[in-house]
Amino acid sequence: MTAPLPPPRLLPSGDAAITVEFGRAIDEWANRRVLALDRALADTPIDGVTETVPTYRSLLVHYDPVRIGFDELGERLTALARLPIQPTTEVRRWRIPVVYGGEYGIDLEDLARTLNSTPDDIVARHVAGDYRVAMIGFTPGFSYLSGLDDSLQMPRRQNPRLLTPSGAISIGGRQTGIQCLAGPSGWHLIGRTAVRTYQLHRDPVFLLEPGDAVTFHAVDSRQFIEQDRAAARGEFVAKLVTP
């Protein structure tokens, strides 16, 4: 019989939410426990829970305090969190096109120099990665991906940019990411995708979900422009890959 997992840390978040914390740092195992608890709550809903928000190392659980109290909810969340993690039988795998370097990835050459490599080698290693969506956050659709090759890890920029383009593919620390909307960023921009991970009037609004698998493939600027037009019409552009 599999031993129960160690209990998480419960933190009150205002008067109507609990943070269920599984660790203090970015950690693959902690993130798997976060997503496992999120799935358990979806499969066996607790009356009074209104929303869950998974992050790298914790799950924020919103609840209605009129229907369930902090102590009771905490006990039930702890019990669920200590159950052995069941293997995920169905994982969606997305193949996402990226145009690398040049005006689309303005930090690629500097990154290659810093890592004593070449732009082509950086691209090859990035494309070879097998990534997993650890969380969605910061801005709508921004997808934080775990699984970055150790050789590509790079501290964030000392001077963040106030504006970076939509669709930016970037590296920040131990992560790579897909930025959907234009906005500020301290990550290193290596490419750009036409894929809209968030599109308000599309169904589904969010394309990627925590737990999804992601691989990248390189395209040229002409293909990017064609894909960008298609994505603007609401097409996914990213492909679901069958196992």
Rank of each mutant, 00 (worst) to 15 (best):
M1I: 06
M1P: 05
M1K: 06
A3G: 00
A3K: 09
P8C: 13
L11Q: 14
P12T: 15
G14F: 11
D15H: 09
D15N: 11
I18N: 00
I18Q: 00
T19E: 11
T19Q: 08
V20Q: 02
G23M: 10
R24S: 12
I26K: 02
I26E: 11
R32M: 01
V34A: 08
A36L: 00
D38E: 11
R39H: 06
D43G: 08
P45A: 01
P45N: 01
G48L: 03
E51Q: 12
V53P: 03
L59N: 08
L59A: 10
L60I: 14
V61N: 09
Y63C: 08
D64N: 13
D64F: 03
P65K: 02
V66K: 07
F70C: 01
E72W: 02
L77M: 11
T78R: 14
L80T: 14
L83P: 04
L83M: 15
L83V: 14
P87C: 14
P87T: 15
E90F: 10
W94S: 13
R95M: 11
I96Q: 08
P97C: 14
V99M: 04
G102D: 13
E103Y: 03
G105L: 04
G105D: 10
I106N: 09
I106V: 15
D107H: 03
T114K: 12
L115D: 04
S117G: 06
S117F: 10
P119E: 12
D120G: 08
V127K: 03
V127G: 01
A128F: 08
G129P: 08
G129K: 01
D130W: 00
Y131K: 14
Y131I: 11
I136H: 04
I136F: 03
G137W: 01
F138V: 09
G141Q: 09
F142W: 08
L145K: 04
L145G: 05
S146H: 13
L148N: 07
D149G: 06
D150K: 03
S151P: 00
Q158I: 04
N159E: 14
R161H: 11
L163M: 09
T164K: 07
I169S: 04
I171A: 10
G172Y: 08
R174C: 03
T176R: 02
T176H: 03
I178V: 11
I178N: 04
G183L: 04
S185Q: 07
G186K: 11
G186V: 03
W187H: 06
A194E: 12
V195Y: 10
T197S: 14
Y198P: 09
Q199D: 10
P210A: 05
G211N: 06
A213K: 08
T215H: 09
A218F: 06
V219I: 15
D220Y: 08
S221F: 06
S221H: 13
R222T: 12
Q223A: 12
Q223I: 05
Q223H: 05
F224Y: 15
F224C: 01
A232M: 10
E235N: 01
F236V: 07
L240E: 13
T242Q: 01
